[in-house]
Design a protein around this nucleic acid. Sequence first.
DNA 1: TGCGCTTTTTGCCAAATGGCAAGTGCAAGC
DNA 2: GCTTGCACTTGCCATTTGGCAAAAAGCGCA
Lengths: 189, 189
Amino acid sequence: MDEFFAYLLQFGSLNPQQLALIASKTTPLVLSKDAYFLEAGHVSRRVGFLLEGVLRICYYSKQGDEITRNFIDEMHLTTDLRGLEYGLASPEYVQAVTDCRLLVFAKHDWDELAHTIVGWSEMVHKMTSKHLREKLARISPMVSQDATTRYQEFLDNYPQLANRIPLSYLASFLGITPSSLSRIRKNIR
Amino acid sequence: MDEFFAYLLQFGSLNPQQLALIASKTTPLVLSKDAYFLEAGHVSRRVGFLLEGVLRICYYSKQGDEITRNFIDEMHLTTDLRGLEYGLASPEYVQAVTDCRLLVFAKHDWDELAHTIVGWSEMVHKMTSKHLREKLARISPMVSQDATTRYQEFLDNYPQLANRIPLSYLASFLGITPSSLSRIRKNIR
DNA sequence: TGCGCTTTTTGCCAAATGGCAAGTGCAAGC
DNA sequence: GCTTGCACTTGCCATTTGGCAAAAAGCGCA
């Protein structure tokens, strides 16, 4: 829980009462490897904070290929804004890559905090936009880089992740085939 | 100005007085082709709404190559959130690809609207997150697609843009060389 | 331990893309 | 009409990456 408080306090100040209120709205959730936190076609009505483990976001392309679009690692929030803000079904899956522990808010509680905690929606705004900006900043350069550079940047961005993720997921995230990633790894050694 | 009002009203309701107040804070700005709306190293303290023309966001890679990261077309906002929200210098340029007409807010006025118009910061939040989510949704698939598919998706996403943008900028945006884009165009014909 | 399954590595060849340089086309200015 | 500059196209060849299949390695489980 302390880790979650530390995360929140990046985005504004909260007194102990407020932190306690926030904590009282969370439910612990354990996901086994390969279990889904969110399935495509469903409306996400919750917000998760990942205490331990790795999640991935994936979808199926028109050609039917499964594509891993993003990884979520410890101490980050995960939700589907389409569901949370607009009540729309998610086109993507959120799946546990390893066993995971999360703290989960129901949408209702998450939204209600805005009425109880002054500045809460401001903080949520900052979390959302920081999160989106960081994703964008990581993905944008990938378009103009070759596969080896993309892999090395991934290692820089997520040093603690590479050895916990199956090669096939990582290859898909990098936009290359598993064979190519395997060869790239060999060349780097 | 009506186009700008229509844009704003996507994100919440505003009465005529409020619209008039907002309008009174804008300054028209004309940019000639190739002029900069924002230069790397500077702190952006304004928000622009593009009435006419095309802008691009670009930067220089470590290798010194100029890379076009994004295009902004009519009826969209442009700013640098690092400057606006955190007072940080922009690492990127915002340059006019064609002659442009904009409406511009000074940061001070933009922020002040939050005190005068109930729900303004909420609206700004929605604009920001919608904008970021859309960019992300367009860029993400590009990583896993081949160059031809990326080009065709670009045509779908920005049908009115392709013929107004120099081939070299578009190639850079797509992460390929101008020669390759030229060949792709030939193959599609 | 040994079996069956999945994941990763490797080899072989084809296709896509890059690098570079020369050629073409078009528009502005003289 | 000619020249000049710039953007785009094309040709040639090297490199990267993909597709496919087989081999090897890892892993759970009886």
